[in-house]
């Protein structure tokens, strides 16, 4: 699959935003986060900013962004529509929270609102994952693991962001660093597992099945319909070389896990310049998650490639 930058940016940025929102709200509801209105507001604003950047970038990916409103209508069957509905729905409690914290209002409503926002964040990210996981055409996506990976990465990147904001405001509770460490580890483990799963599956569909021509033997493409790549090949035909992918996977594991884990350990055990190390970790993770998402697309084989020369998918 063609890794479209708008979609990569959308899923990673909004994932981090929802992750931040989730931990922030959960922490608030559980009373784990200091009740500093300004910090709460800045955190929530950052979450909303990332989510909004993501959503805007995803609308830019649309051919007709001006009609985007129509995308909320088909929640009964479409995960994309559900994601949209969930995202909008999540804006309500999260937006109200942001407003309350901005105005510094004291109200007991923040707890139920926070619970709603946290739930909305989970649902939205899950929907995002399911957009991919529901596509039978792509064996690397059509896996229950996919929403798990999306959720875990959102959690990890969100935790990092929360740690950073809190550190900026001078709070460096170790549970955040620990949480980050755990979520990072969980996502790394999930991701490695994911790669093992997709590597073990050679694809159950063949060019012979796709064309129905298998009886005399193997099917080989003689000529594609058009010399230059057409829409289908541009969108679905992208493939990354195996060797290249292998290197990138290692980079992901380093940038997404090994590197930030060291930072977290530093924060956890030495408490040195927490904000700085969080920022460093965020930089690494951002890089890692962008590559992870890029690979998520680039490593995905679409069944349609069977018509364009692939022998299995």
């Amino acid at each position: 699959m063609h890794p479209a930058y708008s979609v990569i940016l959308f899923t990673t940025a909004s994932g981090a935003g929802y992750g931040l929102m989730f931990w922030l709200c959960l922490g608030h509801a559980l009373g784990l986060v200091p009740n500093s209105a300004s910090m709460l507001f800045v955190s929530m604003a950052l979450a909303l900013l990332l989510i909004t950047i993501g959503l805007i970038s995803s609308t830019l990916h649309l051919g007709r962004p001006e009609r985007a409103i129509g995308a909320f209508s088909q929640w009964r069957s479409s995960w994309l529509s559900r994601e949209g509905v969930a995202a909008v729905a999540t804006y309500i409690p999260s937006g109200l929270l942001a407003l309350i914290w901005l105005l510094g209002m004291e109200t007991s409503w923040t707890v139920p609102l926070a619970v709603l926002a946290a739930a909305g964040a989970v649902v939205t990210v899950y929907c995002t994952g399911m957009i991919y996981a529901s596509l039978r055409t792509i064996r690397q996506w059509y896996l229950g693991l996919v929403p798990m990976v999306y959720l875990s990465l959102a959690a990890a990147t969100g935790a990092l962001l929360l740690g950073f904001v809190m550190a900026v405001f001078g709070y460096v509770p170790s549970w955040v660093a620990a949480l980050t460490l755990v979520t990072l580890a969980a996502s790394a483990a999930l991701k490695v597992h994911y790669w093992n799963v997709i590597d073990a599956d050679p694809g159950k569909y063949t060019a012979e099945m796709a064309t129905g021509l298998g009886s005399p033997g193997q099917v080989r493409q003689l000529d594609p319909p058009h010399t230059q790549a057409n829409f289908v090949m541009r969108e679905m035909g992208y493939a990354v070389a195996r060797k290249h992918a292998e290197k990138l996977r290692q980079a992901v594991l380093f940038a997404l896990f090994a590197g930030p884990a060291v930072m977290m350990l530093i924060v956890l055990f030495f408490g040195w310049a927490a904000a700085f190390f969080y920022l460093l970790a965020i930089g690494m993770t951002a890089f890692g998650v962008l590559i992870e998402r890029w690979l998520f697309f680039a490593e995905a084989d679409h069944v349609v490639t069977l018509y364009y020369g692939a022998s299995r998918a």
């Binding site: 051919g63 995308a71 055409t137 792509i138 679409h302």
Partner: peptide, 21 residues
Amino acid sequence: ICIGCKLCSWACPYGAREYDV
């Protein structure tokens, strides 16, 4: 009313959907 999200083209195994750029 199509918004050009291309998701349907991803869901088609036959490459039968063509996005008009």
